[in-house]
Amino acid sequence: MTRAVLLRLAATAATVVTLLASAGYVASHPKDDRAPLQPPVVKPSPTARPAPTGGRIQIQPGVRATELPAITGTHVS
């Protein structure tokens, strides 16, 4: 047999073996609905607030607010 034919037979054999092994693994490991998730899911606290990821107003930490009265402001013109 030529080398090319031998290589083709080997590749085919590897594919078939992999397919059969995968099928066997799947058949022997069905999903168990009772199995716990890893890591466990943390139920959110009723008082927890979502992290600010966008929202309607955001000010970067370096900018300070004040109780002083504003002398002017930005506005639509």
Partner: peptide, 13 residues
């Protein structure tokens, strides 16, 4: 400490 400016319903410096 900065100019107090009205922005988004609050006053910022």
């Amino acid at each position: 400490e900065g100019w107090p400016v009205a922005f988004g319903g609050r006053t910022l410096l």
